[in-house]
Amino acid sequence: MSELRFTLADVAGVRFAVSPANETVMSMWALSDPVRYAVHLSWIDRARATLRRPEVAVRVRPLVELTLPRRWLPDFLTPAARPGAGMAEQLDQIAATPPDVVVQDLLATLPSRPLSPFGSALLADPRGLLPRLVDAVRIWHDEAIGPDWPRMQALLDADVAHRAAQLAEGGAGRLFEQLHPSLRWLGDRVVSDDPFERDFDLRGRGLALNPGVFTDRRVLWNLLEDSLPAGAYPVRAVGRLWERAPAPPGDPLARVVGAGRAALLHLLETAVTTTDLARLTGMSAGNVSQHLTALHAAGLIARSRAGRHVLYRNTDVGAALLRAARGA
């Protein structure tokens, strides 16, 4: 069990960001355990084919060795993401890790498993071998994550908008109590039901929270004394990530409102952005907007704003129509 202790400045400093580096690194876990990550099977099949290409395999090998099953990740590989940070900026963060921090983070993983051959070599020569590791992360992102990144980012952005609204409406207590079942908010601290046994004082630095496509069972903390504290938590509605046709064949609702609008109603049982809907359905953003305007005018969906995001969700009338169609 871990505890994160907050000051008022830390509560005010809670912020959300999407981390392409986290997704790139943690995606390796899915390759080694497809049963656990069954929701990503379509991506796993493509990614494994990519990793079998000799020119990719040899360059990605350092990352593979540091993300083997049942091994803790060295914290420097998953730096806290700042809002708007892209993959290039996060790669620069990893590349700028001081050698003593690389050594410290590698040694911290030893309770889980002994170091791999590359891990041992990196421990002995962090300055010389860190560029090879950064190159491995870059290649894996370009080859395996990049082609699907717009779809992943849409889901992650929608989660950030939802959590930001929770924080604005209900404060830190509501946010952390609903972020994950393993978390409890005790007024001045978060208690996390995990095996890491950390007792960490944020000391006014705030906390970066990153939703994760490949973060599945618990919140993973990145708590260093000399960098921004961060936590990666499982993204909402990850089962929708690879959906293309949410409306079932022969959907009776489609015969009434049209296939496109029916598809959107099936997806709007939770709040979703226009961008997310376009990625999930394959429709253009303009086409999605037209359908949303018609559904909103008919009273079937509602819209709300969370920061720079506009979220859409079924109204009670829309939900009742959807239930009736599914029961037909």
Rank of each mutant, 00 (worst) to 15 (best):
L91R: 03
R132N: 07
V160L: 04
S116H: 05
R132D: 08
N210H: 14
A259Y: 08
L41N: 11
N314C: 15
L123P: 13
A271K: 05
R46N: 01
P147I: 04
V137H: 01
V58D: 10
R132K: 09
S116F: 08
A164S: 13
W43V: 08
L8W: 09
T7G: 14
G239V: 04
T97V: 11
F16N: 02
G250I: 08
I94L: 04
L175W: 11
Y312I: 08
W185A: 05
S120M: 13
G286E: 14
L68Y: 11
N222T: 04
L220G: 02
T215R: 05
A263S: 15
M28Y: 11
D194L: 02
R53C: 02
A324L: 14
M1G: 09
A47C: 09
A230S: 14
W43D: 05
P34I: 13
L63G: 02
P147W: 06
A38I: 08
P147H: 07
V18S: 04
A278V: 05
G327H: 14
P20S: 03
L277V: 11
A9K: 10
V256H: 12
R308W: 01
M26T: 14
V213E: 00
V235M: 06
E197K: 06
T270K: 06
A47L: 07
A136N: 02
V235E: 00
A328T: 07
R46T: 07
R15F: 09
A161S: 11
V18H: 02
P131S: 07
L253A: 05
V102N: 00
F118D: 08
R53P: 00
L41D: 15
Q93G: 00
L123V: 12
L106S: 09
S192W: 06
V137G: 02
A168L: 04
G231L: 03
A245S: 11
A57E: 13
A9M: 03
G212H: 03
A324I: 01
V235Y: 05
R52H: 10
S284K: 13
T97F: 00
A161N: 06
G206I: 06
V272Y: 06
R113G: 00
N287E: 14
L167C: 04
R53E: 15
R46I: 04
H296V: 01
D316P: 03
D142Y: 05
E23V: 09
L292C: 07
A21D: 00
D193I: 01
W221N: 00
L267T: 10
V102Q: 00
L63V: 11
